[in-house]
Design a binder for these strands. Sequence first.
DNA 1: AATGAATGAGGTTTCATTCAT
DNA 2: TATGAATGAAACCTCATTCAT
Lengths: 225, 225, 225, 225
Amino acid sequence: MSSTPESAARHRRSAGFSGTSTPRDLPTTPRGLRTRTKLVEAARVVFERDGFLDARLVDITTEAGISAGSFYTYFDSKEEIFSAVLAEVEEEMLHPDVRQVTNGDDPVSMIRKANRAYLESYQRFSKFMRLLEQVASIDEDFRELRRKRGESFVQRNAKSIRQMQQDGVAGADIDPMMAASFLSGMVARAAYSRFVLGESWTIDEMVDSLTELWANALKIETPAS
Amino acid sequence: MSSTPESAARHRRSAGFSGTSTPRDLPTTPRGLRTRTKLVEAARVVFERDGFLDARLVDITTEAGISAGSFYTYFDSKEEIFSAVLAEVEEEMLHPDVRQVTNGDDPVSMIRKANRAYLESYQRFSKFMRLLEQVASIDEDFRELRRKRGESFVQRNAKSIRQMQQDGVAGADIDPMMAASFLSGMVARAAYSRFVLGESWTIDEMVDSLTELWANALKIETPAS
Amino acid sequence: MSSTPESAARHRRSAGFSGTSTPRDLPTTPRGLRTRTKLVEAARVVFERDGFLDARLVDITTEAGISAGSFYTYFDSKEEIFSAVLAEVEEEMLHPDVRQVTNGDDPVSMIRKANRAYLESYQRFSKFMRLLEQVASIDEDFRELRRKRGESFVQRNAKSIRQMQQDGVAGADIDPMMAASFLSGMVARAAYSRFVLGESWTIDEMVDSLTELWANALKIETPAS
Amino acid sequence: MSSTPESAARHRRSAGFSGTSTPRDLPTTPRGLRTRTKLVEAARVVFERDGFLDARLVDITTEAGISAGSFYTYFDSKEEIFSAVLAEVEEEMLHPDVRQVTNGDDPVSMIRKANRAYLESYQRFSKFMRLLEQVASIDEDFRELRRKRGESFVQRNAKSIRQMQQDGVAGADIDPMMAASFLSGMVARAAYSRFVLGESWTIDEMVDSLTELWANALKIETPAS
DNA sequence: AATGAATGAGGTTTCATTCAT
DNA sequence: TATGAATGAAACCTCATTCAT
């Protein structure tokens, strides 16, 4: 693994991921922009292949086809370029299919669709998700950053649950926030088990099972079932 | 992660966690045994405090009050002593309260008890659990090791679900293995959110909520409720 | 220092301050002249602020508001632009008040005026004087250059002392060259103590004290005192 | 000189010389003590030969005959080992001839003896004195440290001057502190001119001249002259 | 069995200088 | 002339591991 003397040394002093450093301005010239892009793409390849810890800056610059010193024209540290990769991937995750949950659907269909969308996205970005998991386990700041982002997602789910309770569709004795948090966690964990740990379920199986558990858990009444 | 060609060079002296190295025999003399124990305890302190990556062998030996060189009388690497710590903690986790689920209880009570036991154990060992999470995210071998151990736990749960289905207590259309895996995952994730990420739920709230979600998910009929 | 065999390798690209390089011609175009001037002024600011060693060329070009590459249109090295700054400051030091010692004055008044002029000039250029001190301590060539320049100053003083001896005003048993050198050194050192090290004497106190010591040292007879 | 790209980089971040860091304990074992001594001696050789700036740690360890990594067993930085060299040389400067100014002597003899002792010491340690000068010009902390040490020396001289004034031996209208400071500065500067800049005076000439100037400056009455 | 000093590989980082535009 | 991105040569520093005592 990664605790050889060399790599161990590399991890000792973290530069911090979030908040502490303001991202520097993008380069103004086309050439600079091109190089920066090459660097970020190379970093993603290397990070996903080797993990954050084993990724050496020289691997990244080599992959990008530039000299080691040029790295510092664009980033100050491995952490900083990781943040850039993160931003890029998030961009990519959101853009292609504007996660549109058709609101006309019945509750269970909506849950099913959301679960499928989540799993498919996780699959597509599975290498990156493993990377995220690693960085989160290494860096407290990043962990906190991630938690905060998850919170808003949970809140939306909680709101939706509350609505269902008011509509008499979901069980009234359930705490919406905790339920949203725990059920989202269940799905996230399942995706991790499948795409990082390598469990052998099919996505369809997973969607079916998770949707049923989720719907049952909320005691959602399916009128014509 | 640990076998891509690019990073191979840096792993020359890597030890790995599982399989590759047989744990060496315990020292024969009482003095040796005592020193080994001191080392393992020190390692646990340092690992839990600094994380696996930032823990230096010299920190461990200093904490143990022995010289740096003596480390190698007992262990070959950081990975090996980590395994020893792991074994020690597992011992400790099992010993004190032999997780006895009284089989006379009704299903929901049993689930509730299991959930509570899990959360309380997680709380007691929260520092260690965070450490486990980190090491799992770093090392593929360890991840696999962990997955395997979890499997038997899931299998037991699955068996129990199957039993409830046969008893007509739980919904018949549910896949027992997946349900067991996903619901266990839900609880594990909740514990992680609470004790590592720092969510502010009380354990009682969590037990109530998780138990209800779990029981609902399985459509467990509670006759006299 | 700059020619020991061991460190020679590191000096391959060293420029040196004096002799080795002929100052290149001034740019012909007005624009070029303007840019050069901006550079020299920026260099002075940066050198005085950060010292010679910590001054980076990029700091200088940034301060000048030009690009890093343009530096080499005008100068070959940090040493060369330092020489230009030196020339500029020397120009400035001489220009404003043409150090005219009224020859009608009595010897002690002349000494007093010279001392005051020296101290006031040192104060005005104290940042630069500290810089000079630093560069002298770093570079043997520059040290030699400076010594030579000081020599003519000492010689003038020595001549004046010799004159006073012939006039019977100063003690005859004094070596004029050494006296000139040592007493000038005393004043220079006092100025350094005051304006670089930060001693808290007032200039008036210093002038009084230095003048008295100087005059006494030469046994100057003050007829009507 | 030393502003090649390589060495410039080395100077950028100073670790500070004084106060900021507590000197670590001496090694306990004889072997460690021996190695540390070798290092300090090697550092002195390299510093005196190459100057502080051009001295590389690897030069020092090579000179000491140990590996580069071992440096950090004893010192944290170039600044720290410089402090150790400084301490060693100060030890050496004080030991051999316990600067005993025979108090029975007449004032001028005492001044002469002190001047000669100073110059001879400066000559013996001229390489080190040049080094001191360099470090002082580079590092503000060290400059301050040095100033403070000089102060007590000046104070002693001032006290002696005050005594002479009370005894009617020295001119009463002289400020003792300033006179002490300026005259000491004169001697120090003369020594620097001679042994660092390379002026070609003999020590005897210098002693004669400096002593006469000093005595005259204080208007010391030499009864039988 | 214990000690602790010594080793050495190699990634990171800096910035004067070059060069294509 | 001007630009500013790209280069590349080293020095620094760390710490798991070895080894003489």
